[in-house]
Design a protein around this nucleic acid. Structure first.
Lengths: 188, 188, 188, 188
DNA sequence: GATGAATGAGGATTCATTCAT
DNA sequence: AATGAATGAATCCTCATTCAT
């Protein structure tokens, strides 16, 4: 429950950092279901250490991505302040959101909650990114730039979906697709 | 390679039909990665029979969905003839395409070719649906209703992506999202 | 549920026989909790084969010992017919029972039902040996050679307990101990 | 080897006491094979502390039960003095012995020396309880109440065996069984 | 002395795939 | 052609024990 605490002992801190880095790398290669052994080996620790730090796989996945997710959520404020209009802010922030999703392979799984494994990730999404998106979406709606019945959830979900498998396919440009999607959402 | 032939012996024909039905049912329940054993059991045959008819999993997946895919591809012609404008035809045909994707759990894997397993499915997509989509997209471009630099591939891919995990999430309406996407694509 | 069926295919029959023998041998050496791997290796089969034939460990344990247990249960009739008095029959049959327990290392677990693992063994005991014992005990009670309030269960349980770890300890003679126990039970 | 000394530093004394209490509690719940971690956690100390105080598990088990064992051994003298006859003393003392075994889950392992883990416990038995039993048995033999060839070891071992798993099984009364055993030992 | 992080051996179990029957 | 037994790699997870802090 709540944010993972930074360990106090130096060896534990080192292990944890190595694990996060190794897991992030493995996730890119093999997805969030990468074998625990592979992660441990890459981090140069034993499997037991993985389990000590992250008792369940979702714990690890969440920890790996929390930083980036927090950063993205924080950017929403900046975008709102900077953009000439709320819709511009939305476009700018969605750019960050898309960057997050296409570079961090596996993060998109966060959005679809179909299997039980991604539940924790989904929760992270709901708790952090959704509120950020809601702020911008609401502003755009109040400015009359988005339909009033559109929810932040469906906007972010749609964008997230458009990012699936974007890296692997050079014939598909997720950012361009998201551009169309946003254009279709815009009022007037 | 190429279309699976219908077996000549009656018992083989029966096995094949039972397998297709069983696989379709299992795919709905457990996804396209459903254990071979489960499929064989549901079909009332041995696992060896599964491998005889469908040497690889994609062979089975393709066989299961080929019929519907063919039907969807054929609908393109009808839509083009019926729709007042090519864009209307596109909208109508995309409706069929979306129906196919959201009801046949696992068919979306057809679009992403990331892991080796979906190669055959992806091929099916490239061979059947893409040409169908290209016809409509080209027509819409010639009518000035779609940007000239848009490819049928990216359109179908985007739409396909928007359908991921749609069934499982009542807060997300894939058809609505696809509507925004198409609206964003429309010229004028 | 019920008796394990003999497989029809020759390779399966061979595997099953090899497994039963190997398991029996391993049980002697390492107890009924012997690693599945060790049993498989000794039988010259893969671990998967163990699981195919005996999905759970108790299934294997029961199968290993069922034969001997059946034999012992059957001996009750013979003893009753042979013995001059019911108590003599009891003594004779208990001799067989003790032989079974001290030679088949791990079979004593049959009596205690503390952990879930021995449930199946305990059931085997209740279904086969207990009825056999009850026949003799009842006869002895009717002949006035045993207290009327004694149950076959407590008699067999006591005897079984006395057999714990008998092999390993040369300073302790289970048969002698059982002799004292029976002597203490005898009336007059 | 030999008796564990009481530590001098106050914190060490506190740790040791907490560990003994925690271990006793865990042993009741989970048996003498309770995870070291669980014991340490209950005592509110680190696992390292467990190993410092009790290098091996038997060391801990012995320490936990030494008190009760000493008490039981001491009772032999009292019983001998009190009982009308040596056999009465034996019966009385065995009552204490049985109480010890059935209430202290896992202490029965003291009697069987099959695996290496219980070596220390077995030694405790040989050093403390066996001499106590020998005193009474010898007295009973001299009074002609026990066969002269019976050893205290086999008497205590038999009784100990009869106590296995007594708590868990309401259909089996260890004390009653021990009563039969003693009755069978009695001469005349 | 105390701590608890790290280790890694050990054991269980599943399932895709091959191949004897 | 059909069967399903056999295989064993792959993966998970636990826990006793050591050792750096």
């Amino acid at each position: 429950m709540g944010v993972q605490r930074e360990p106090v002992r130096s060896d534990a801190r080192r292990s944890r950092a190595a694990l996060l880095e190794a897991a992030a790398a493995e996730f890119v290669t093999a997805g969030v279901d990468a074998p625990v052994r592979a992660i441990a080996a890459r981090a140069g620790v034993g499997v037991g250490t993985v389990y000590r730090h992250f008792p369940t796989r979702p714990d690890l996945v969440v920890a790996v991505y929390r930083h980036q997710v927090e950063g993205c959520a924080a950017a929403a404020r900046t975008c709102l302040d900077a953009g000439p209009t709320p819709f511009d802010a939305l476009v700018a922030w969605v750019g960050e959101f898309v960057d997050l999703l296409v570079t961090k392979h596996g993060l998109v799984a966060m959005l679809v909650h179909d299997d039980g494994r991604s539940a924790a990730l989904h929760e992270l999404f709901l708790e952090r990114l959704l509120p950020a998106g809601e702020g911008i979406v609401r502003a755009a709606q109040e400015a009359g730039q988005l339909p009033s019945d559109v929810t932040a959830y469906e906007v972010l979900r749609g964008i997230g979906n458009l990012c699936f498998g974007a890296e692997a396919d050079s014939a598909y440009d997720a950012r361009r697709a998201v551009g169309f999607f946003l254009a279709g959402l815009r009022v007037a």
